[in-house]
Design a protein around this nucleic acid. Sequence first.
DNA 1: AAAAAAG
Length: 509
Amino acid sequence: MTTFAELGVDQDIVEALAVKGIVDAFPIQEQTIPLGLPGQDIIGQAKTGTGKTFGFGIPVVQRLGPTPAPGVQALIVVPTRELCVQVYEDMDMLTSGRPTSVVAIYGGKAYEGQIDQLKAGAQIVVGTPGRLIDLNNQRLLDLSHATEVVLDEADKMLDLGFLPDIEKIFSKVPAVRHTQLFSATMPGPIVALARRFMSNPIHIRATDPDEGLTQANINHLVYRAHSLDKDEVIARILQAEGRGKTVIFTRTKRAAQRLSDELGDRGFNTASVHGDMSQEARERSMAGFKAGKKDVLIATDVAARGIDVDDVTHVINHTIPDDEKTYLHRAGRTGRAGKTGIAVTFVDWEDLHKWALINRALEFGQPEPVETYSSSPHLFSDLDIPAGTKGRIVTAPKTQAVRVQPERAADAAAEVETNGQAPRRRRRRRGGDAERVGSTFEPVEGAGSSTSEQNGASDDGARSTEGGGTHDGGGKEHHDGKPAPRRRRRRRGGSGGGSAPAGGAAVGA
DNA sequence: AAAAAAG
């Protein structure tokens, strides 16, 4: 481990980091900070949650000097408003020991405060493309002296949706400048495109060549969902022992809102964030989730990239993402800064081809998603990562799934309605729902063991598969009829284990 | 095709 001081980081920044408990530099920081400080153009690539922001942020702050003159000298461009706020906060922290000031420029907010801060002489601007261009057009944001330029989530900023804006922004900053592009994912064609905006960039990949493509601290579970059953399965995951915060991703804004309402009705402490919400509501959701007042965040891909929240133990893909890059970024909301996490993905029938693509691209070596049943919640409470399976697929444990008894499901639902805050609306077709929960399932015998064998057979032997199947196969207390959660119930700390009968056969790739 | 990003 290298300390920041050893990398040439100024004392005031070292102290600002120390206040946050950050002492040792991560590999991407060790590699990019010494290059960024003297002004080397960098394409920085490192897995999710491994410290990229400070990798570019520290050199930006130091290159402006200890007491910079007023005026925008650094520009950091990000793809979403929430990430803008987060990166702003990081940069504000880094500059807390010096007069350098930072401003966040993004849409959905009043212009006034942002303009005031620019007029007051902010030196570092963190912004989203639309508002940056807007203020630049209004001659309220002068970018002609921004000699430090960063694209965070660079591959996203350079994709078709953003590229015209980015080209516009690059046309407004000095031709002679220091340019840094960072992301966890950098496809070859994007790297080639990126070079147009850089001079002699060096491409840093802070990854162990022996590692897979996925983040080692995250385990992955993939299931083919019974669509009528998905809400129920997700509700069961949310009752897993040892669960900390959870982020659930949907494909559309409408689905995010519906699921948020549904899980809220079931008594979970939910927040949501998507583009149909007011910016105020979006920020309230994020703040509540970060602070722990809410422990379930339902989001579109607006939250897929960059968002850093402590103690997210589960990521759930309610709908499978479109490609492997989005998969990595979504899953990367957990397993950050060395912590462990689990990513559960549901694949609808019509999306099986998407799974095939992701499976191949990420080298999971999982031929078919496993069937899922809401009656087997223990499938989803595995936070322990068995040796030899890091960052790989983990499949169902060899336990027998048990069907939810309709009457008990109804009891659980009734309990939700009678405790604490009333649901926003009554569940529809209460009895019918409960009936359906029981009747949707196919026979479940061997749900665990057969899938494990199936997956084991897919192992090509390249990776060790030891360490799986170490669990008790019991966990009867979780098999069915577990009451719906009470409001404010907290499940904190620990990494699975305990009463969670998690575990399972691990599959190499 | 969806989501994001100005209003």
